[in-house]
Protein backbone atom coordinates (compact mmCIF):
# COMPACT_ATOMS: atom_id res chain seq x y z
CA UNK A 1 0.00 0.00 0.00
CA UNK A 2 1.34 3.44 -0.84
CA UNK A 3 1.91 5.78 2.11
CA UNK A 4 -0.82 8.30 1.35
CA UNK A 5 -3.46 5.59 1.11
CA UNK A 6 -2.18 4.09 4.33
CA UNK A 7 -2.50 7.44 6.01
CA UNK A 8 -6.02 7.86 4.73
CA UNK A 9 -7.04 4.43 6.01
CA UNK A 10 -5.57 5.25 9.41
CA UNK A 11 -7.43 8.53 9.52
CA UNK A 12 -10.70 6.83 8.63
CA UNK A 13 -10.21 4.17 11.32
CA UNK A 14 -9.41 6.82 13.94
CA UNK A 15 -12.31 9.01 12.94
CA UNK A 16 -14.83 6.19 12.98
CA UNK A 17 -13.60 5.10 16.42
CA UNK A 18 -14.08 8.66 17.65
CA UNK A 19 -17.53 8.86 16.10
CA UNK A 20 -18.48 5.54 17.67
CA UNK A 21 -17.42 6.74 21.11
CA UNK A 22 -19.23 10.04 20.63
CA UNK A 23 -22.36 8.25 19.49
CA UNK A 24 -22.29 5.92 22.46
CA UNK A 25 -21.81 8.88 24.80
CA UNK A 26 -24.75 10.75 23.38
CA UNK A 27 -27.03 7.73 23.32
CA UNK A 28 -26.27 6.43 26.80
CA UNK A 29 -26.28 9.81 28.45
CA UNK A 30 -29.75 10.60 27.19
CA UNK A 31 -31.10 7.17 28.05
CA UNK A 32 -29.44 6.79 31.46
CA UNK A 33 -30.00 10.31 32.70
CA UNK A 34 -32.32 11.01 35.56
CA UNK A 35 -34.52 13.96 35.01
CA UNK A 36 -34.05 16.92 37.28
CA UNK A 37 -37.29 18.25 38.69
CA UNK A 38 -38.61 20.53 41.32
CA UNK A 39 -41.25 19.36 43.78
CA UNK A 40 -44.05 21.12 41.88
CA UNK A 41 -43.11 19.27 38.66
CA UNK A 42 -43.22 15.94 40.47
CA UNK A 43 -46.56 16.74 42.05
CA UNK A 44 -48.01 17.76 38.70
CA UNK A 45 -46.86 14.76 36.73
CA UNK A 46 -44.86 11.80 37.91
CA UNK A 47 -44.81 8.40 36.24
CA UNK A 48 -44.86 5.59 38.75
CA UNK A 49 -41.67 3.59 38.61
CA UNK A 50 -39.59 6.29 36.99
CA UNK A 51 -36.69 7.74 38.90
CA UNK A 52 -36.40 11.48 39.35
CA UNK A 53 -33.76 13.76 40.71
CA UNK A 54 -35.64 16.29 42.75
CA UNK A 55 -34.08 19.55 43.86
CA UNK A 56 -35.67 21.63 46.54
CA UNK A 57 -35.27 23.39 49.82
CA UNK A 58 -35.79 21.44 53.02
CA UNK A 59 -38.98 22.74 54.61
CA UNK A 60 -38.41 24.29 58.02
CA UNK A 61 -39.57 22.07 60.86
CA UNK A 62 -40.16 19.06 58.63
CA UNK A 63 -37.11 16.96 59.56
CA UNK A 64 -37.99 13.89 61.64
CA UNK A 65 -36.34 10.58 62.34
CA UNK A 66 -38.36 7.41 62.20
CA UNK A 67 -36.26 4.49 63.23
CA UNK A 68 -33.48 4.30 60.66
CA UNK A 69 -35.34 6.52 58.22
CA UNK A 70 -35.10 10.23 57.88
CA UNK A 71 -38.26 12.03 56.89
CA UNK A 72 -38.47 15.56 55.65
CA UNK A 73 -40.23 17.62 53.04
CA UNK A 74 -38.75 19.68 50.25
CA UNK A 75 -40.29 22.65 48.52
CA UNK A 76 -39.67 24.60 45.33
CA UNK A 77 -36.82 27.04 45.30
CA UNK A 78 -39.36 29.78 44.79
CA UNK A 79 -42.85 28.72 45.73
CA UNK A 80 -44.71 26.70 48.28
CA UNK A 81 -45.40 23.38 46.54
CA UNK A 82 -43.86 20.70 48.75
CA UNK A 83 -43.49 16.95 48.79
CA UNK A 84 -42.46 14.61 51.62
CA UNK A 85 -39.33 12.48 51.33
CA UNK A 86 -38.48 9.19 53.00
CA UNK A 87 -34.76 8.67 53.08
CA UNK A 88 -32.31 6.23 54.55
CA UNK A 89 -28.54 6.29 54.58
CA UNK A 90 -26.03 8.84 55.69
CA UNK A 91 -26.95 12.43 55.86
CA UNK A 92 -24.31 14.74 54.44
CA UNK A 93 -22.85 17.23 56.87
CA UNK A 94 -24.30 20.37 55.34
CA UNK A 95 -27.87 19.00 55.51
CA UNK A 96 -30.03 21.61 57.24
CA UNK A 97 -33.54 22.88 57.21
CA UNK A 98 -33.94 25.65 54.67
CA UNK A 99 -30.98 24.49 52.62
CA UNK A 100 -31.11 23.25 49.05
CA UNK A 101 -30.75 19.52 48.57
CA UNK A 102 -31.07 16.98 45.77
CA UNK A 103 -32.58 13.52 46.25
CA UNK A 104 -33.01 10.77 43.70
CA UNK A 105 -35.91 8.39 43.92
CA UNK A 106 -39.29 7.16 42.77
CA UNK A 107 -42.63 8.64 43.74
CA UNK A 108 -44.80 6.30 45.83
CA UNK A 109 -48.12 7.41 47.30
CA UNK A 110 -47.23 11.07 47.06
CA UNK A 111 -43.91 10.56 48.82
CA UNK A 112 -40.48 10.43 47.29
CA UNK A 113 -38.96 7.11 48.27
CA UNK A 114 -35.36 8.19 47.97
CA UNK A 115 -32.60 5.82 46.98
CA UNK A 116 -30.19 4.95 49.72
CA UNK A 117 -27.38 7.53 50.09
CA UNK A 118 -28.74 9.64 47.26
CA UNK A 119 -29.10 12.78 49.35
CA UNK A 120 -26.76 15.51 48.18
CA UNK A 121 -26.41 19.02 49.51
CA UNK A 122 -24.88 21.83 47.56
CA UNK A 123 -21.14 22.39 47.56
CA UNK A 124 -19.84 24.17 50.66
CA UNK A 125 -17.76 26.78 48.88
CA UNK A 126 -20.94 28.47 47.80
CA UNK A 127 -22.39 28.99 51.25
CA UNK A 128 -20.65 32.29 51.66
CA UNK A 129 -22.48 33.44 48.59
CA UNK A 130 -25.82 32.41 50.04
CA UNK A 131 -25.14 34.23 53.24
CA UNK A 132 -24.32 37.37 51.37
CA UNK A 133 -27.54 37.27 49.45
CA UNK A 134 -29.81 36.54 52.37
Amino acid sequence: MDPSRKRRTRLIVALSAALLLAGALVYTSFSAATEAKEPSDVLASADAGKSYEVTGKVVNGSVKREGDDLRFAIRDREGTAQIPVAYSGTVPDPFREGREVVVTGKVENGTIAAERDSLVTKCPSKFTEEKKKS
Binding site: L25, V26, T28, S29, F30, A32, A33, T34, E35, A36, E53, T104
Partner: peptide, 23 residues
Protein backbone atom coordinates in the same frame (compact mmCIF):
# COMPACT_ATOMS: atom_id res chain seq x y z
CA UNK B 1 -19.82 15.56 28.29
CA UNK B 2 -21.02 14.10 31.58
CA UNK B 3 -20.24 17.27 33.51
CA UNK B 4 -21.98 19.56 31.07
CA UNK B 5 -24.78 17.14 30.27
CA UNK B 6 -27.34 19.07 32.36
CA UNK B 7 -26.75 22.11 30.18
CA UNK B 8 -26.57 20.12 26.95
CA UNK B 9 -29.78 18.27 27.69
CA UNK B 10 -31.59 21.42 28.69
CA UNK B 11 -30.52 23.01 25.44
CA UNK B 12 -31.55 19.99 23.35
CA UNK B 13 -34.67 18.69 25.05
CA UNK B 14 -35.67 21.62 27.21
CA UNK B 15 -35.47 19.41 30.30
CA UNK B 16 -32.60 19.43 32.71
CA UNK B 17 -31.21 15.93 33.09
CA UNK B 18 -28.05 14.64 34.63
CA UNK B 19 -25.96 11.50 34.53
CA UNK B 20 -24.64 9.80 37.64
CA UNK B 21 -21.44 8.00 38.61
CA UNK B 22 -22.49 4.70 36.91
CA UNK B 23 -22.57 6.48 33.57
Amino acid sequence: WGTFFPLISEAVTGREQSVGPPW
